[in-house]
């Protein structure tokens, strides 16, 4: 079984059951669009997949092996971009990316990073403290990681927030390329994915009382 498999996940937050016995597989070459109303547990599910929080019951498997045992391997192949961007406002875009790459053990080539930032429309803003940038520009800095760290699994929580239409199109195209080259993505989004994102599977979470 290639891919990231969730087996019978149950999540309870603050004594409310978000989902029970949820099973699915995220295979390489697949884009899963996770949908559901607010409070349905989309973010909780994504955080469980990353390992940041643990489910009430159920297990995760990576390529058929328990994820607990292969956590290090998984982390090397994972990029998670959550609600919180993970970008420090006092550091510049370049510094943020350099330190992030160092933490994740990814080789950092400055010229490549400048190129990526330029592609994301941040020319001239590379050495400005990120807090000076607009919300959409900060989001672009966070998303530039998707170009910097080679990895199979992308777990994205509302990646399109604060992006303008150009930005959305750019990201969707990048997602499509990633899937085409045997990447695997699970993403949430409050607005439907457009045709730029390529084919996708839907996973719907219901709101439970």
């Amino acid at each position: 079984m290639a891919g990231l498999a969730a087996d019978n996940l149950t999540c309870i937050k603050r004594d409310r059951v978000l989902f029970t016995n949820l099973s699915f597989t995220l295979s390489p070459g697949e884009l899963i669009y996770l949908r559901g109303p607010n409070g349905a547990g989309k973010t909780s599910l994504l955080r469980i997949l990353t390992g940041l929080s643990s489910p009430e019951s159920g297990r995760l498997y990576l390529n058929g092996e328990s994820l607990e045992a292969t956590r290090d391997v998984f982390n090397q192949q994972l990029i998670y971009i959550g609600h919180k961007a993970g970008i420090n406002g006092a550091l510049t875009a370049m510094e943020n990316l350099r330190f992030w790459c160092a933490q994740h053990g990814t080789a950092f080539v400055a010229s490549h990073a400048y190129e990526v930032l330029a592609r994301l429309g941040l020319v001239g803003l590379e050495d400005v403290p990120v807090r000076m940038l607009s919300a959409g520009q900060q989001r672009r800095v966070a998303l530039s990681r998707l170009w910097l760290k080679p990895s199979t699994y992308w777990i994205l929580d509302e990646p399109f927030t604060a992006l303008d239409t150009d930005g959305i199109e750019l990201l969707e195209q990048h997602m499509q390329q990633h899937v085409a080259s045997q990447g695997a993505i699970i993403t949430t989004s409050h607005q439907p994915l457009s045709e730029h994102a390529g084919p996708f599977t839907e996973l719907v979470l219901e709101y439970r009382l």
């Binding site: 390992g51 290090d72 982390n75 919180k84 406002g89 992030w100 933490q103 053990g105």
Partner: peptide, 16 residues
Amino acid sequence: DDFWDGSLEQYMLSGQ
């Protein structure tokens, strides 16, 4: 700061 801006999440997923 690391908690509120999400850097802490990124540390935890860095494999270190």
